[in-house]
Design a protein around this nucleic acid. Structure first.
Lengths: 207, 207, 207, 207
DNA sequence: TATGAATGAGTATTCATTCAT
DNA sequence: GATGAATGAATACTCATTCAT
């Protein structure tokens, strides 16, 4: 499928991938210009289409590529020895924060891709995201000691409440960053806040 | 700002607003065509720009307009006599569901606007949404009897957990609808599920 | 349909029509460049599409336009008082030769259009040509005195032989012109040759 | 000129020729893609240009090649013992019909080539066609007994009338086939019609 | 001889915006 | 106020041809 592209030397591949991710992350699918991508990557018009066929295929390739990098980096670092859910989440948040600093464009690209309204790619991306979630959902709860939880509540719904809380917090922090003039993240405040939520949730849901 | 437009007779205003909302809701900001809007509204090309200056200003005007309609309709219907938070939320969900059926285009437009990646409008819309949420947040908790809650937890964080849960549930249901072939909403199942979450959250956070 | 275009002042219409006919006649449908047409006509890119919608519609408009001109000019000049078939054909050939000199591009355009292999327009053009022929076939034989012909032959087939002969002669002369370096037509030689064919055909098919 | 190509083993030559003829016959000169040809032929892009220099030269080579095949097959089968013109034509029509079934792509290619409007090849193809006709014209009338014809008419012009008739009939049948939904040829009806024309032409031009 | 990556000018069409009327 | 003709840069994508390997 993309063997032509994957046979390129790493430096050129990276140049093209980074140029494309940047453009898509900044402008969304429809507004991203293949012209800008080739200009940024320093390759000719035709070459891009020689590698990827068309814009859509290029986009979907990039999406898969980014998912793979993040998934690999993320799930490899999760400590499966940790049996306590909140410790596990504490660790996951730490890892995610590190990755977010390491690959800011990559995360932005995936986030934008997920929200992109362009009908051309919407359905495919949603399918991919669903598959991804199904796979990953399992991993993060793998080996957790659920006996610590109150037995008078549906454990699945309790987990949903906990993850909803941290996902919403994450989204809010992302928005704060975008809207703040310095685009700086106040890690210390966030850390403290998270611990406060941990405390409440443990009081609420642990035996 | 838009005084020229607002001085038009109501019928013409409505024709233009409805045409524009429909186009933006269907195609998103970038793909929406001013051509289609004027055709649908039965006015001339030049007139649209005479009223709104440009596409971006027209879009932002529409966004404000829709927010106002929905906010008005939403908050007017909330029963402020209801002091119990979960009953209040139960009522709010009901009202929102009704409005969603009543103004599908309006909601769709706002949703699309919120997700729209077009760099031209993104920042402005996000700012407006934040302001809107800040205003509304207060109203929904107005007059609630917080004495029912456990006193060993920060009440603000508990509220955040509760709202996060229902917002995430709402988002998931919206996605389910989009991905389902019939685009039908299973209100009964949702109702039951919400009640189950109410039960858990009351056990967890009420005295 | 093309009312926008037809409301233009005649001079501009002509400039655009002539530029387009020239380009299509020279290069065929597929190879004709809308870029070249607007450059030659001295109008902007968008305007062409404002008038005609797309390349195909422009082409079909031009085809109809050319057919109309030729048909009008051709059939209006035929002398319907002339009852003798060969005299009638003699007259028609004269008229056609004059028109060919008057509108060389027009004729070339129609001829090319008829032969154009481009799948986009082939079917439509063929349909139009068929309709045209059906209408015109009648006119040229209108009021002819067929009692002069031998009665032991199917008159329709005899007419087919006669028209085939002159059509083929016409095609051959067209080719000769194209291939000759001077692109000059030797009218006198052709005149003489035609008369010789008349003589033979009259001997063969008249009583 | 094409010695590099002609030194290839027959199998590879055929693979390339067939791929190219198919592509040109299907899409015409301009729309034919060298990419498709090399893909179908299973050779590399560069090799095609190594053999033929460029698209135009390849096309002209193919045209010559096809003409040669058809001419060889056609003229070898003509019964030169048959001295009667109409019997000879009868035979020729039969042979041509057979060849048309045997080599549909080849014929289609030549036909398309002849009609192709692409200015790049038009002039060259027309010259070749003229040469071809001059050569063949002689052969088909070789050894015919012209004493059967009326002596009060120029025999060359009579022959022109006869051939024009059948050529036009052939063109019309080709068009009918193209426009008919089934693309089926009604051989029986054609046979009958041809015989009726034979009868008329014999009455008209035989002593 | 054989490969296929690389080029870049070319294509039709769209679209927000302007401006003379 | 109201019109809609006019603009031209922008879009994704194609394709014959070249050339380093």
């Amino acid at each position: 499928m993309f063997s032509k592209f994957l046979n390129l030397d790493q430096e050129k591949q990276d140049r093209i991938i980074n140029a494309a991710i940047k453009e898509f992350a900044l402008k969304g699918y429809d507004n991203a210009s293949t012209n800008e991508i080739v200009k940024e990557a320093g390759i000719s018009k035709g070459l891009l289409f020689h590698y990827f066929g068309n814009k859509k295929q290029m986009f979907l390739f990039l999406f898969d590529h980014c998912c793979k990098i993040i998934a690999d980096e993320f799930y490899i670092k999760i400590n499966l020895q940790e049996k306590d859910l909140f410790n596990r989440i504490r660790g996951a948040i730490l890892i995610k924060t590190e990755l977010l600093n390491q690959y800011p464009n990559l995360f932005k690209f995936i986030e934008e891709a997920y929200l992109d309204e362009s009908s051309e790619i919407k359905i495919e991306i949603e399918k991919k995201v669903k598959e991804l979630n199904d796979i990953n959902f399992g991993k993060i709860y793998d080996g957790i000691d659920f006996s610590k939880f109150r037995s008078d509540m549906d454990i699945k719904k309790v987990l949903k409440i906990i993850t909803s809380t941290f996902e919403k917090l994450g989204e809010e922090e992302m928005n704060k960053v975008k809207l703040s003039p310095s685009h700086q993240i106040d890690y210390e405040r966030i850390q403290v806040e998270i611990e406060e939520y941990f405390e409440i949730l443990m009081k609420a849901f642990y035996k």
